[in-house]
Design a protein around this nucleic acid. Structure first.
Length: 663
RNA sequence: GCUGUUGUAGCUCAGGGGUAGAGCACUUCAUUGGUAAUGAAGAGGUCGGUGGUUCAAUUCCACUCAACAGCACCA
């Protein structure tokens, strides 16, 4: 699609700032060749004003041009996309009756959805991969053709590609379609693609097979999806596979069992049996959060677990959320629901009695135990459960206080994450969805305030916190911030959230009395930091790979004796540590020290304190820290003081430090 | 919820129409040892549940529950 008004000369600016003129119609490849043969060989595409284009495509207009080589991050997208096409060709070459549908690039790889009578097996994947390597070795060029809609439709109808016909139908009537060919095989595709199938290289792997709905709609037919990963070189592929392996090793379900933290069983799908050690971790986290919210001026409350249906009708949950609620009918035929959220309860507490503007902001927190009937397929260890505890809070304030409150919440959230070693945070601003309550005017005002807060968050963080818009993803009752943290192996988790609510105070008729003795509706802010405590602990287990910092660890030290003669002294050591507030276990079993060290290391106990005759004589201890192969000898007093110092929670340490700095 | 896979001892797993096996863990005994598995013996199972086929089912079939992977969902 050339612009006839365009001049016959293109003026292109290169990344080094130089500007050169080219004849109209010059292709990206010709430009690369003009620079150097070796560049042309390495290049896979070009970017015009940042948009990726096929190398063979003529440059359409003047602008900034970059030749994209394989080493460029953007080349990955092409490699993956090319790989998806190669996958589809391989599958159709092996099983010609298979229909193709779509094959997009995703994070770390790509997939392609097929319609085939039988599902693919893991053995099939090996066969397909072999065929793919053959296709890559053939080195067929990717060539683009522009077809008319009618031609494309006729072709796909003839070949029985019903899904492609549907895709063609979905494209605007006046628009032509791109067809990408590789050898004999072709696909409807937006592009761009690399120069040839060889561009895919060898650093790819088919990962797994799964069902997926046609066009992502659960009313549609289920297709067979093959997932693959593809990278620019073997090293990147290896790193990725290593990360997956590492994730598997850290799986909180596995570590939870090995560390004796919790379990699940058939009778309670999606609800956690917390064991003593897991519950201690849980309480460590709750206690930490309790101190933090107190520091930030919240009052902790506790609202009922079960409330009459009428209340949920008023809150709107009965209409919006009913299929996700656990309900119960009592002997007298009264219907109740187990709370899926804490907000209606908190509004009742706010409403009890008359509120003055002088009280605002009212900051009400609860470690609220909620139950939600999640779809069975969504359950996943601690990460997605049907019964969980939220570190929930609601701030009732005036519109004028909103900005300040959002910033304070932001401060609380970010410092909390930092205390657990999460320093790579993205804050997203989710704005009005299509289906919503409240006037546009109200949304305008709220979004403007939140955008301002977002800008301040980014500015204050000095580049550490990234922010992103998330248009259309807000809740129906108001815009929200979503806090996404990145764990130690690079995975992202959305945990915290700050949500403005226009609906609930009005629904319940909550108000305060302002300076002029008039009723005013408060603004309500919902906020959570960990989100679900259960899930947050799951994330922490995987983030730390089970190696909790001392202040979080359920068992902080084990005193293990080498000979039974040291048991008496061992008991004394354990007592001294317990007196200092540490959780200590003793292991006086008739076993060798090797055996004990192995066992407690596998149980991820942070400190193993070995006691033999020597230590008993000298009043010392020998400490072996988790992850280390060495041990350190010190006096009992030194051990007590260094371990108890290390076990101080980060927030308490911060306060101590601040106090010391003041003096 | 949908598709696919799986369900045998506390854990990891083998087996297979004639009512079950290994390693680790557990218990007992011996061993008192110096930083990731001391040795021996013993105990441990309605083979996820219900129904069907069969002389006989843990094994085959149907249904069901749960888990796993992905999709959909997460207001």
């Amino acid at each position: 699609m050339t612009n006839p008004a365009q001049s016959a000369v293109l003026s292109l600016e290169f990344p080094d700032g130089s500007v050169r003129d080219f004849e109209a119609g010059t292709s990206g490849l010709q430009i690369a060749e003009g620079i150097s043969k070796s560049l042309a060989k390495k290049s896979v595409a070009y970017a015009l004003n940042g948009d990726l284009k096929d190398l063979a495509e003529p440059v359409e207009h003047s602008g900034k041009i970059e030749i994209v080589t394989r080493a460029d991050e953007r080349a990955l997208e092409l490699i993956r996309h090319d790989c998806a096409h190669v996958l589809a060709e391989a599958v159709q070459e092996l099983w010609p009756k298979t229909k193709v549908s779509i094959g997009p690039v995703i994070e770390n790889g790509f997939y392609y959805d097929f319609d085939r009578d039988e599902p693919f097996t893991p053995e099939d994947l090996e066969v397909i991969e072999k065929k793919m390597r053959q296709i890559i070795a053939r080195n067929d060029s990717f060539t683009k053709e522009v077809w008319s809609r009618d031609d494309a439709k006729a072709y796909f109808e003839k070949t029985g590609e019903t899904y492609k016909v549907e895709l063609v139908d979905a494209i605007d009537a006046d628009q032509n379609l791109n067809i990408y060919k590789q050898g004999e095989w072709l696909d409807l595709c937006l592009g761009p693609h690399g120069p040839s199938t060889a561009n895919v290289g060898n650093a790819f792997k088919l990962m797994n097979v799964a069902g997926a709905y046609w066009r992502g709609d659960s009313d549609n037919q289920m297709l067979s999806r093959i997932y693959g990963t593809a990278w620019a070189d073997e090293k990147q592929l290896k790193n990725y596979l290593f990360m997956l392996e590492e994730a598997q090793k850290r799986d909180h379900r596995k570590l939870g069992r090995e560390m004796d933290l919790f379990h699940f069983q058939e009778e309670g799908p999606g609800v956690v049996f917390w064991h003593a050690k897991g519950w201690r971790v849980f309480q460590n986290l709750v206690n930490y959060m309790r101190r933090r919210i107190e520091e930030h001026g919240y009052d902790e409350v506790n609202a009922p677990q079960i409330l009459d249906k009428a209340l949920w009708q008023t809150s709107g949950h009965w209409d919006w959320y009913r299929e996700n609620m656990f309900t119960t009918v009592t002997e007298d035929d009264r219907q109740f629901a187990i709370k899926p959220m804490n907000c209606p309860g908190h509004v009742q507490i706010f409403k009890n009695g008359l509120r003055s503007y002088r009280e605002l902001p009212v900051k009400m927190a609860e470690f609220g135990n909620v139950h939600r009937y999640e779809p069975s397929g969504a359950l996943h260890g601690l990460m997605r459960v049907r019964g969980f505890t939220m570190d929930d809070a609601h701030v009732f304030c005036t519109p004028e206080q909103l900005e300040d409150e959002c910033l304070r919440i932001n401060d609380l959230i970010l410092t909390t994450y930092a205390d657990f070693g999460f320093d790579n945070i993205v804050v997203k601003l989710s704005t009005r969805p299509e289906k919503r309550v409240g006037s546009d005017e109200v949304w305008d005002r709220a979004e403007a305030i939140m955008q301002k807060v977002l800008d301040e968050i980014e500015a204050d963080s000095e580049g550490r916190i990234k922010t992103e818009p998330n248009p259309g993803e807000g809740a129906f009752y108001g815009p929200k911030f979503e806090y996404v943290l990145r764990d130690a192996i690079g995975r992202d988790w959305q945990c915290g959230t700050t949500q403005i609510d226009f609906a609930l105070p009005e629904r319940f008729g909550a108000f305060y009395i302002d300076q002029n003795s008039e009723k005013q509706e408060p603004v309500m802010v919902h906020r959570a930091i960990c989100g679900s405590m259960e899930r947050f602990i799951g994330i922490l287990i995987e983030h730390y790979a089970g190696h909790f910092p001392l202040w979080m660890a359920p068992v902080q030290a084990v005193v293990a004796t080498i000979t039974s003669e040291a048991d008496g002294y061992g008991e004394k050591v354990a007592e001294a540590l317990r007196d200092a507030g540490l959780h200590v276990e003793t292991d006086f079993r008739n076993e060798k020290i090797n055996y004990k060290v192995r066992e407690h290391s596998l149980a991820k106990v942070p400190a193993i304190i070995a006691i033999g005759a020597r230590e008993a004589d000298q009043g010392t201890v020998s400490i072996r820290r988790l992850g280390s192969k060495n041990q350190t000898s010190m006096t009992l007093e030194e051990a007590v003081s260094s371990l108890s110092d290390e076990a101080v929670a980060p927030d308490i340490r911060r306060k101590k430090q601040a106090r010391a700095d003041r003096n």
